[in-house]
């Protein structure tokens, strides 16, 4: 479906995309994560033929985006970060133009226009000028044009940016539905959004791919699976002694919180944080100390993102 090999893009002395390689061959929603300026939009622009690469290749269903652009682009639907809309036209006029440019004619064009209008829920707005539509509807019109021609690969650059919470939920539901039948490649810097929608995540930092896996497996790869916070009515030394003896505890940090009470942060040595939390509870109960708080904090996608993008390690 999508093959990116050794993709590099330089702007003078700055390397925006640095030897990027990955392959996507199944349908689903793929998240493209990275901090601002990591090279997400540049990569997407190269993948859609809007920008040239300094080196490397992009193939869509086996067709090279530069050597066979017409064949490759027929298989792509693209929504740029700022939707490319002719504001003086109605969604219907706009979709007709995009459909015709994609080679659709007559009844096929009419049917596909109706299908994407239905799919993106812009039926009521089809005859209004685009400049009179809300940002959410404009985004939907942009997605509708990307779906014309039944592309195998739909590339959406920050599809929910600037939308209100309700519109975000709508667009997320739409993308999740699209991902059931097509390969949808979305970029975002909203981690929760990617976690809820995507079956696989690509993380890019400083133009390099640093991770490409499912959210669950990325969590497993994290050096620290999480930590347990404990607040107890006992002395700091006694609390440390109780927890340090437990086999699952890798490290313990204790701070005194007034007379006869303390707070501990326990890092787990193994994967099962909940087993360690039960052990901590039993240890304090057996010693007769009162626990006022016992909280398990698992590693989130945010931790993974920070560890990978700040560490800059290679996938």
């Amino acid at each position: 479906m999508l093959q990116v090999e050794h993709l590099t893009r330089r702007y003078g002395p700055v390397t925006a995309v640095d030897d990027l390689s990955f392959e996507i061959s199944e349908v689903g929603v793929y998240g493209f994560l990275g901090p601002n300026g990591a090279g997400k939009s540049t990569t997407m622009n190269i993948m859609t033929g809007c920008l040239s690469a300094t080196a490397g290749t992009v193939k869509i269903s086996g067709y090279d985006i530069y050597d066979q652009p017409r064949e490759a682009k027929r298989r792509i639907g693209y929504l740029p970060e700022q939707p490319s809309l002719y504001l003086g036209e109605t969604p219907e006029e706009y979709l007709r133009f995009v459909g015709e440019a994609k080679g659709l004619r007559g009844e096929t064009l009419r049917q596909q226009m109706e299908a994407v209008i239905e799919e993106t829920g812009i039926g009521e707005m089809r005859s209004r000028r685009i400049d009179a539509l809300s940002k959410g509807y404009r985004q939907r019109v942009g997605i509708a044009q990307a779906l014309l021609g039944q592309p195998e690969l739909v590339i959406l650059d920050e599809p929910t940016v600037g939308l209100d919470p309700l519109q975000i939920l709508d667009i997320r539901a739409l993308i999740a539905a699209l991902g059931k039948t097509r390969t949808v490649f979305i970029s975002s810097h909203i981690l929760s959004e990617v976690q809820t929608m995507c079956s696989k995540i690509l993380i890019i930092a400083r133009g390099k791919l640093v991770a490409f896996d499912t959210p669950e497996r990325l969590e497993e790869q994290l050096s620290s699976p999480g930590e347990i916070t404990v607040a107890a009515d006992t002395g700091a030394d006694a609390a440390r002694a109780l927890v340090a003896e437990l086999p699952g505890a890798a490290s313990v940090t204790v701070s005194e919180e007034g007379a006869g009470s303390c707070r501990l942060t326990v890092t787990a040595g193994g994967d099962d944080l909940y087993a360690l939390s039960r052990e901590i509870f039993r240890a304090f109960a057996a010693s007769g100390s009162t626990l006022s708080e016992l909280r398990v904090k698992k590693a989130t996608l945010e931790d993974i993102f920070l560890e990978l993008t700040e560490g800059g390690e290679s996938a």
């Binding site: 622009n45 859609t48 033929g49 809007c50 652009p69 017409r70 064949e71 682009k73 027929r74 792509i76 693209y78 740029p80 700022q82 490319s84 809309l85 002719y86 504001l87 995009v98 440019a101 994609k102 080679g103 044009q145």
Partner: peptide, 14 residues
Amino acid sequence: RQRTDQLLYALPVS
């Protein structure tokens, strides 16, 4: 100005 040139680049037309 409208950034619709990006659409033209992404469409299967030269």
